[in-house]
């Protein structure tokens, strides 16, 4: 019997400090057994349990994209026991990754549509995975207009800055970067919270457009009325939720919102699905 609790062994290949306060680091992992990479076949929007012997596991969204081969990447906020330990680990250290877990963004439905991506803070990880996936030359023709609104507290807290600058230059994606505030006089992008910037910059929604929203609860709360005003249907607003998790496979019983399990039935739900639950997240 396959053991769904057994992580694949991985080696830390690279560690990138993403934010100026050093609270966010991206870890690039390489599988110790190369055949495990194929077993880990994933889609953008899924997550995995990062496993450290002696410390435990932590569910984290997959930041690398299915079109990137030979490694997987996760951006981790230093917060609890496992993530604090991980932040002190070094390149070459051995740990585990268990997954991929959960569902992905609804790629079949998104094909042929305009896609608006709204992200805030360090929840941008699976959105980065999605953007890289859609911009891949084999996939880009499958989607209509792609618009991204991404915000962080300050310029120094933005993730993946090199990639943001590159996307800015492309003409097949509209990127709107914003920060809550900055004292940097050379800052040439937007200043303001994500919801009002979305209202100014995002295209009108119709039956041909979807919005994917991922960010802190307060951002989701204030983005929802903006998207409604822009004409996005509740079935076309896609959210990625998080809850405390242990098993990640729908068995340990803690991450449910009503009868839905965030780990297995989610983490991706449409707003109309979420509206039918008690919203205990």
């Amino acid at each position: 019997m396959d053991n769904p609790y057994l992580p694949y062994s991985v080696r830390i290949d690279e560690i990138i400090t993403e934010s100026e306060d050093r609270s966010l680091k991206t870890f690039k992992f390489v599988f110790l057994n190369s055949e495990d990479e194929a077993r880990f076949a994933y889609q953008a929007g899924q997550f995995a349990e990062l496993s450290i012997a002696g410390k435990g596991e932590i569910p984290i969204g997959i930041a690398s994209s299915p079109v990137e081969k030979g490694f997987i990447k996760f951006t981790v906020n230093k917060a609890g026991v496992v993530t604090s330990h991980l932040h002190n680990m070094k390149t070459g250290d051995i740990m585990g990754v268990r997954g991929p877990l959960g569902n992905c963004y609804p790629w079949e439905k998104l094909e042929g549509k305009n896609v608006l991506i709204v992200g805030g803070g360090f929840a941008f990880t699976t959105l980065r995975s999605s953007i890289i996936y859609m911009l891949d030359s084999a996939n880009r023709p499958k989607f209509k207009d792609i618009t991204v609104v991404y915000g962080a507290r300050t310029p120094g807290m933005l993730l993946y800055k090199d990639e943001l600058i590159e996307w800015e230059k492309r003409d097949d994606i509209n990127v709107h970067i914003t920060v809550d505030g900055t004292d940097d006089p050379s800052w040439k992008y937007n200043v303001g919270f994500v919801p009002p910037i979305t209202e100014q910059k995002a295209p009108q929604g119709n039956e041909d457009s979807y919005a994917i929203v991922c960010g802190p609860p307060i951002m989701i709360k204030f983005t929802q009325p903006v998207l409604e005003k822009l004409g996005y249907d509740h079935n076309h607003i896609i959210l990625s939720l998080e809850n405390r998790m242990k098993c990640g496979i729908g068995m340990c019983g803690r991450c449910n919102i009503g009868r839905e399990l965030v780990c297995k039935d989610g983490p991706v739900f449409s707003l109309s699905e979420v509206n039918q639950t008690p919203r205990e997240y």
Partner: peptide
Amino acid sequence: CWCFDIQDEVHAKNGKRMRNWD
């Protein structure tokens, strides 16, 4: 009732991952 927790426990260099009723 089947809910459970997963915890790591280490004695010296030997560790185990276990689950406990929650």
